[in-house]
């Protein structure tokens, strides 16, 4: 049984549904990322699980127990806020020890565990400082220590890396992942950054308009996006429109070519089919589809080419070397049948 089960959760703000009969499961000890754009409802989902937003319908079960009757302070899970929400009038140690104090832990026990928690995030030397005297990355780690010190079975993280700069984000992400493994707590992390979600999480759930439209391992999402939105959100995928043929092929006049995806699209003949083709799965050779380079963008060790086929389709492909063909240059494109992913 999953640690967290969200069933048919609906939240309305005014008349609009922020969450629309949403289903989600978080297994024990897993790292799940909720990926979505702004307004997709991902932060609302976290706030509803934490108890700050009352759902209009649906259930939230943690370890099989319905959380509905419990106010936030009695829910056995903790949240790390996007802005960290550190108490500015308390020292770092008092911030971290706040939950233990509320739980009535003995002073000696509290001091020991606060020390251990600060050591875990490498902030032993900052115990007596005020949060305002710390850098953004240090504040983030205080917030993490404060939420993890109570050893929750489930930790909710709202854009935990969102306020950090790019260099720090990568390192902190790896630390987050290591902490998750070390503590064994399940993490449910909200992010709008697909690279972050794919790199850190065991499972990724993609949210659109208050619904989970696809969930799976990062690999599954990357290789088999279910919808145009997922394919687009995960980045750098071409979407090729075509018409289903009786033999399972797809006629794509914009290329022009007849494509044969390795996975059957299952559509009746004559109906429209959309296929995703990732930029890095397009190869360059002597045989295949002719195209002309219209634009080349340097991408650090590779070039992202924008190409136009003779049928007028615009495709993006990754040239594996820094110096690729210049605009106006003619190339020939090919790909494996398995690179073509039919979309819902």
């Amino acid at each position: 049984m999953s640690l967290l089960q969200v069933e048919g959760l609906t939240v309305r703000f005014g008349g609009a549904a922020a969450l629309d009969a949403l289903d989600l499961e978080v297994p024990e000890g897993a790292f799940v990322a909720l990926l979505g754009g702004s307004g997709s409802g991902k932060s609302t989902l976290l706030r509803t699980i934490a108890g700050f937003v009352a759902p209009a319908a649906g259930r939230i079960l943690l370890g099989g127990v319905d959380l509905a009757p419990l106010p936030p302070e009695r829910r056995p899970l903790h949240m790390m806020f996007q802005s960290y929400a550190l108490f500015p009038h308390m020292s770092v140690a008092d911030n971290v020890g706040y939950g233990l104090r509320r739980a009535g832990a003995a002073t000696a026990e509290r001091i020991r565990r606060v020390g251990a928690a600060l050591e875990m995030v490498g902030l032993e030397a900052f115990a007596r400082r005020r949060p305002a005297a710390l850098s953004g990355g240090q504040q983030q780690r205080v917030a993490l220590a404060r939420a993890l010190i109570l050893r929750p079975r489930l930790l909710l993280l709202d854009e935990p890396l969102g306020a950090l700069d790019a260099a720090l984000r990568e390192r902190t992400g790896a630390e987050l992942r290591a902490l998750q493994r070390a503590t064994g707590s399940a993490f449910l992390m909200v992010t709008h950054d697909q690279a972050e979600a794919l790199a850190l999480a065991d499972r990724v759930a993609v949210l659109e308009q208050g619904r989970v439209i696809q969930q799976g391992t990062p690999r599954e999402l990357w290789d088999r996006p279910a919808t145009r939105f997922v394919a687009g959100f995960l980045g750098a995928a071409n979407i090729i429109e075509g018409v289903a043929l009786a033999d399972g092929g797809v006629d794509c006049p914009a290329l022009p070519a007849t494509l044969r995806p390795a996975v059957p699209h299952g559509k009746p003949p004559g109906s429209p089919v959309a296929l995703a083709l990732r930029a890095e799965r397009i190869g360059f050779g002597d045989e295949g589809l002719p195209a002309v380079v219209t634009e080349a963008t340097y991408r650090g060790g590779a070039s992202l080419l924008t190409l136009r086929t003779s049928g007028g389709a615009v495709l993006r492909a990754l040239w594996p070397e820094a110096s690729g063909p210049a605009p106006e240059h003619a190339v020939t494109l090919s790909w494996e049948p398995s690179a073509l992913v039919p979309l819902a």
Partner: peptide, 27 residues
């Protein structure tokens, strides 16, 4: 006063009175 601070206190187990005494009043 940042309402997130009270939410954070609630999340860490503080009831309404504890939130008032430990977060709202000092601030």
């Amino acid at each position: 006063l940042d309402p997130r601070l009270e939410e954070a206190a609630a999340d860490l187990g503080a009831g309404p009175v504890a939130r008032l005494v430990t977060v709202v009043l000092p601030q």
